[in-house]
């Protein structure tokens, strides 16, 4: 365990760098702090005095921290910061809105044109809405963690589990709706015995399409959650390894 953890922990919180850059910077400072401490000890200072002097010597001012962050911020990240900053002009915001709206429209249009979705009918809508919500949340988290590289743990973890929950909800909804439509089909079969076979066949086709959409959507959402959760766990591990 590093003997300067109580100094490094608040420093880590003040250093908005993506991993692994943050851990590398902190490791470097931790190593130099320890060397500095040894240097002061060798020069005859007591343990406490040496420790205090080392910490004092390595105090990173806000200005130095900002400069460090600037050095490690890529051109792409700076561009994204500009895009998501409050300082955007009205036309920039409008343009972003138009691009996002067009992309969403094209995605929804493509999904609805799919044969399986068409066969499943309107009963697939609750599942589709959950799937879209999961994907949207996944994309937002992907942007935050991988592109914007905001690796502050509390923010990185926020809403992450909601993606897994949405994956589960898609499966449950798929089975529930299929079960309910079986009940409706059974009633129709009882009322219309002559075409009972046709009703049963139609149910089989629509229910299997519905379940296919539900399971595929859930699988995709779960995979996105898994990839994001692994990345967040990696960030947490990197920090824990350094600070505990």
């Amino acid at each position: 365990m590093t003997s300067f953890a109580e100094v490094l922990r608040p420093l880590s919180a003040r250093l908005p760098l993506p991993q692994p850059a943050r851990t590398r910077v902190l490791l470097e400072i931790a190593a130099d702090l320890e060397d500095m401490y040894r240097h002061y000890r060798a020069s005859g200072l007591s343990e406490e005095e040496a420790r205090l002097k080392a910490v004092e010597a390595f105090d990173l001012s806000d200005e130095a921290l900002a400069e460090l962050v600037r050095v490690h911020t890529s051109f792409f990240r700076r561009l994204l910061d500009r895009l998501s900053s409050q300082a955007q002009s009205r036309w920039e915001r409008g343009l972003l809105l138009i691009v996002a709206g067009t992309l969403s429209f094209v995605c929804v249009h493509l999904v609805l044109r799919g044969e399986v979705v068409a066969v499943a009918g309107t009963q697939v809508w609750p599942t589709l809405i959950c799937g879209m919500a999961g994907l949207t949340l996944g994309l937002i988290k992907f942007y935050q963690i991988h592109i914007k590289q905001d690796h502050e743990l509390r923010r990185a973890r926020r809403w992450l589990d909601a993606i897994a929950i949405l994956a589960g909800v898609q499966v449950i909804l798929g089975f529930l709706v299929a079960w309910f439509s079986l009940y409706l089909t059974a009633r129709r079969m009882a009322e219309d015995v002559e075409y009972a076979g046709v009703h049963l066949f139609n149910w089989l086709v629509s229910a299997s399409a519905l379940l296919s959409v539900s399971l595929m959507g859930a699988l995709l959402t779960a995979m996105i959650w898994f990839a994001l959760a692994r990345r967040v766990a990696g960030i947490a591990d990197a920090e824990a390894a350094l600070l505990t």
Partner: peptide, 14 residues
Amino acid sequence: NHGTLYPILHKLEK
């Protein structure tokens, strides 16, 4: 201040 070293070192490295 030794703390000011790191931004300079990292910049020169970059």
